[in-house]
């Protein structure tokens, strides 16, 4: 069973891939009944994770400024 902690570390791409794999396994019926339940639960979590990633997508543009002392700071950037 996938823990929430494991989900934190996973990338979107991995989550999508895992989700797809589970769906394929279920479609092919290659999975044991006992595992199918936990696989399904995992798939639901992965799907929610992917949804969250998509929902939280937000455009943010910052510009990096390097001071003469070499300090780096960021400011919001608006394209002309």
């Amino acid at each position: 069973m996938m823990t929430d902690k494991e989900l934190e570390k996973i990338t979107f791409e991995e989550a999508l891939l895992q989700l797809e794999n589970i769906v394929r396994e279920l479609e092919a019926g290659r999975i044991k009944l006992d595992d199918a339940v936990s696989a399904y639960e995992k798939a639901v979590k992965l799907k929610a994770f992917c949804d969250d990633k998509l929902k939280s997508a937000q455009l943010k543009i910052e510009k990096i400024e390097v001071s003469p002392q070499g300090e780096i700071k960021t400011t919001d950037f608006v394209a002309e």
Binding site: A57, Q58, L59, K60, I61, E62, K63, I64, F77, A79
Partner: peptide, 17 residues
């Protein structure tokens, strides 16, 4: 670049001019 990123998948862009 900003427009295309915004249209495809709004993300965090850091510009180093």
């Amino acid at each position: 670049i900003i427009h295309r990123v915004r249209d495809r998948f709004p993300s965090h862009i850091l510009l180093w001019p």
